[in-house]
Each structure stands twice: as structure tokens, then as C-alpha cells.
Amino acid sequence: MFEMPGTPENLLEVRDVRKSFRVPHAGKNKLCALDGITLDLARGETLGLVGESGCGKSTLARTLLMLERPDEGTVRFDGVDPFGLRGAELLKFRSRVQMVFQDPYASLNSRMSAAEIIAEPWRSHKGLIKDRRDRDMRVRGLLDLVGLGAKAADKYPQEFSGGQRQRIGIARALALSPDVIICDEPVSALDLSVQAQVLNLLNDLQEQLNISYIFISHDLSVVRHVADRVAVMYLGRIVETGPTEAVFERSNHPYTAALMSAAPTLNSEARKQRILLQGEVPSPINPPSGCRFRTRCWKATDVCARAAPAGVADPQIPGHSAECHHPMLLEGSGLETVPA
């Protein structure tokens, strides 16, 4: 497990969180979605969360939204365990963590106007608005904030483009003045030019409002553009974490190196040798012993099967660490040459 001591600057602290699910026809075996997740999120920071489909990213997001309760481990938000809250305190917490969904078409109710969609959170969180006039004024302010303007208030989702719909989704997430927004592939359904506009909007909002983002994405180029730090997930574990450029340019875990070698780049000098992984991702119902990546790793040895690896720090980059018995970084210098 990574050693990440809590500090006052951290808005969110997750320690050794585990979550499993029972599945049909699996007997006593459970699907292990999260296996000892530890991470921090600072105020005003963007943490990129990357990994293959099925690695546990969505389960982690649902846990942070308190839609799933961890089997083990702790989650502390601003120093408080949200799973211990009840009543009004719990409702207040829920206002502080919001979500922007992947599909801007499916995530909006086509029978509601933009104003009704944005105002919907206030129905559950009563007392945040005084009256209809106050509501309308706040809706107009949020529409201006996301670049749509007050004239969009009375229109319905089908009258907007995909990028405009996603702006409505962002405005809805902002309605409760959250501290953290979890962005689940928020631009993957949009055209490239529109993606850039939405990403720039998120960046501007972060600068204005000091919001923290957890940015989930398969698109490594997008993550590199928006994230301050990156956490790489594989089969329920975070195998590497660190500052964005360190993770991209000094990948310490073999799985991260394989991911980064597949990322497209326009800089021919910066192109890395492609690492092709062998085999399929193991089942989370019956994961490998020791290191979960060992069945696909060209560096695996007997020790990888016997014991789960501890976090290994990058000696040159503070905060950059990977769980690996045979990290990519050699002692004292540079990256190891890896096979194709």
C-alpha cells in the first residue's frame, strides 16, 4: 500500500478501501472490485484516474459518492467520515460531491427544460433557494457561468448540441456549490473541437471556484492535458500514482509503461517503443495471487506470485510511486529498456 499520510491540504483521503460483490453462479467467490485503494485529493486539484474497462474506476466513483459502502478501509472528506453521517449532515455532505456523466444525451431528462434540470438538485436540498425568483436568478447565473446564456433556460435538451448538453450537466453539478466533481468520461462522446471547449470550461471553473476534480478517462491525451496527478488502476488496485508528467514520462510500473507506450504523440522524438501485453485481463472473481499484473508482465518472477508488491518511490520525483517488485526505474538513473 502507498504511504500517503493525511495533511490539512487534502480534501479527500481514501485509505485501504476494499469492495466486493456477490455474483450469480460464482459460489462463495466474490467479484473483488476494489482491493486496498489508497489515494488523496487536494483542494483545487485534478486527479486523473485511468485504466482498462473493469478495473474498478466506476466502483471507486460510486463509493466516493456514497452510493456504495466499502467493506473495509476508510474514506475521509474534509476530515470527516461521510459513512458515519446521518440526516441533515449526510444531506449536506452529498451536496459537496457531485458528478458529471459520460453521455450528455442520456443524462438529461428530455421532458425537462434546461432551467428545470439545473434546478432539480434544489428539490432535495431544501433551504438553498428563497423562492422562484431566487431560483430563476441562480439558474441564469449558472447558464452564464457555463457559457450558454440565460436564453437557454426555457429550451429542452433535444434543442441543444452534445457539447451544449454537457454544459447543462456541468451547470447542474455546480448548482449545489460542490467541493468535488467526479467527471466520468465527460468528453468521450463529443467531437474533438467540442472536447477542447468543454475541457477549457472545466479548467476555467476550477480556477474561479477552486473545485477539485476526479477525472475518469480512457483517453490518455485528455488526462495529460487536464490532470495535476494521475492514478493508474489495474484489476481493483492503484498500481502507480504521481504527478502527471512523471507518470507519463517516467512510468515506473510495467502496466503503466504499456499504457503510455500506446498513447499517440505528434512528437517523433518522444515516441516510445510499443509494449504489447500478452493474454487477457484476469477475472476479478479469481484474481492472480501476489501481483495481479504478473500473468501479463514480461518482468514477472517467482516473488511476484508469492507476495503483493509494496509501493516503490521514484528517487527523483516526490509523490511518484508504483507497486512493483521489479519497477521500471533503475537505481540512480533513467528508464529501463523494455521489449516490444
Rank of each mutant, 00 (worst) to 15 (best):
Q98M: 10
R69E: 12
E116S: 13
T74N: 06
R69Y: 00
L108N: 08
E45L: 07
L90C: 08
G87F: 03
R76E: 13
R94W: 06
L67N: 03
T63D: 03
P104S: 11
L60V: 06
R111V: 08
G36H: 04
M99R: 14
R86D: 06
F93T: 08
R96E: 13
S113T: 15
G73Y: 02
A61R: 02
A115C: 11
T59H: 03
L85C: 10
R86S: 13
L39H: 00
D71N: 11
T59S: 10
L47V: 10
D103Q: 11
E68S: 06
K30V: 14
E68V: 02
L67C: 04
P70A: 07
P82I: 13
F93H: 14
T59Q: 03
S107R: 13
T74E: 13
A42N: 11
K30T: 14
P70F: 03
R69N: 02
F101S: 10
R86V: 12
S58A: 06
G84M: 09
D81L: 11
L65Y: 05
L41Q: 09
L65R: 09
A106I: 08
G79K: 13
K92T: 12
L34P: 01
T38E: 00
M99C: 05
G56Y: 01
E116R: 15
R69I: 07
E68H: 11
R62I: 03
K57A: 02
R111F: 03
D40W: 00
S53E: 01
R69K: 15
F101L: 15
L31S: 07
M99F: 01
E89T: 06
G79T: 12
P70G: 06
G36M: 06
A61S: 14
L47W: 02
A88R: 15
T59G: 02
G84A: 12
D81K: 12
L31V: 05
Q102N: 10
Y105L: 13
Q102V: 11
G48M: 05
L31M: 14
A106K: 12
F93K: 08
R62D: 06
M112Q: 15
R94C: 10
T74Q: 13
A106H: 07
P104L: 12
G36A: 07
L91V: 09
T63M: 12
L34R: 04
F83G: 08
G48D: 05
A33Y: 01
A61N: 04
L47P: 01
V100H: 04
F93C: 07
K30W: 00
E45H: 07
R76T: 14
L60G: 02
V97N: 09
V80P: 00
S107C: 11
L67M: 14
L64N: 09
D81A: 11
V100T: 09
K30P: 00
V50M: 01
I37G: 04
L60W: 02
T63S: 10
P70Q: 06
P82D: 12
K30R: 15
G36K: 06
E116K: 15
S113P: 08
L41D: 06
A114M: 10
G44Q: 05
A115F: 08
A114H: 01
T46R: 09
L67H: 01
T46V: 15
F77H: 10
